[in-house]
Design a protein around this nucleic acid. Structure first.
Lengths: 197, 197
DNA sequence: AGGTAAACGGACCGGGCGGTCAACTTGTTA
DNA sequence: TAACAAGTTGACCGCCCGGTCCGTTTACCT
């Protein structure tokens, strides 16, 4: 559709600086980070931000899209790992830890904003479900866990750690360890009724 | 210090309506809920809100304080329960579930705003730690779990469920079940290095 | 009943937000 | 190198927020 002739050199430079600044700022302040502050951090004018992305939501969607793509790629790679349980744990660790950038709330905030993002997100969810099914078949996690369970739980460590102000940067690993132990079949207790859709 | 003669009847009525409305609105929209909307829900003018609480933060602190008091009372009660493990589980369930009102983020937002709240919060934390220690001594949970771990994890179910739009109201129980299984000694794997302070 | 202080409420204020625009600068191309 | 389109920018707009203020209403006391 769009002719999309190449960006001018300075525009391309500004665009990537903008995306980097936005990723940092959104990670630090959440989705409510101000466009003006992002522009300042990127060293460009506020107007330039809106030239590259017509709306703040579009900028957020672009940042989230990067992350979703990365996670989907990792999920596909890990499908051929030797140990399905370890693969799932590594995936959840990457979701939680990678520069502790982006938690599930971003996926919620960005839903419905951008059609392409919605598609990629569905693909990511499918890849996660496949990873979970493989781990279940290998007996690495209990049989009553669904893909949605993992999607919901995978960023909880990150969220939980965000409450302790001077937290060591790897503290999320502790809570991922605890939560993942809860997914294991060894000491599993029956779960109460409702199942996530 | 304050003479504190009794409130006029209408003022007392408005105050309790305000607190109820604020609790609902903060629960629904988070700490960013607008004062105007809270006032509308309570059926009073915006000016009246600021007559009862000089600042929006003070209103938030009052709402959080109610919740903290309730939880601290429950924690003390449960110290004499027969089964220490079940007592801890019940406590975490109450923290997560009780009209799924208030998660840890409120405790963070409200920190440093109100001296009394800070004190009550410290007391709540101490009570939780005692509950955790008793469960540890009974062998109901693994020995490497701290009070802070439970504080951080206890509202994760609530948070996690908030991402699924049409969630059944009791879905949080599922995730509390998973997380609590991760606290149990039965299938525990060693946890990675950093410990929460 | 009537006087009074307490309580009420909504217009109003300053500030910060997302987003727009027109004047200005700059990379590109022939 | 000249000319033009693409890109940049910061002042500006409307909106909503927390918080203030003062004219009005209302519960209480005697």
């Amino acid at each position: 559709m769009t002719a999309d002739r190449p960006l001018r050199a300075d525009a391309a430079r500004n665009r990537s600086a903008l995306l980097a600044a936005a990723a940092e700022e959104f990670a630090a302040r959440g989705p409510d980070a101000s466009v003006a502050e992002i522009a300042r951090r990127a060293g460009i004018g506020k107007g330039t931000v809106f030239r590259h992305f017509p709306t703040k939501d579009d900028l957020l969607a672009a940042v989230v899209l990067d992350r979703v793509d990365g996670l989907a790629g990792l999920a596909h790679e890990l499908m051929s790992a030797a140990d399905p349980g370890a693969a799932l744990l590594e995936f959840m660790g990457s979701a939680a830890g990678h520069q502790r950038q982006l938690d599930l709330s971003f996926l919620r905030e960005a839903a419905g904003i951008n059609d392409r993002l919605d598609g990629e997100r569905a693909e990511l969810f499918a890849a996660i479900t496949a990873l979970v099914d493989r781990a279940k078949q290998a007996g690495a996690i209990r049989a009553d866990i669904t893909g949605m369970d993992v999607i919901l739980l995978m960023c909880a460590p990150n969220h939980v750690v965000s409450f302790v102000p001077g937290a060591p940067p790897e503290l999320w690993r502790r809570y991922l360890g605890i939560i993942f132990d809860g997914l294991r079949p060894e000491g599993a207790h029956p779960l109460p009724e409702p199942v996530s859709p």
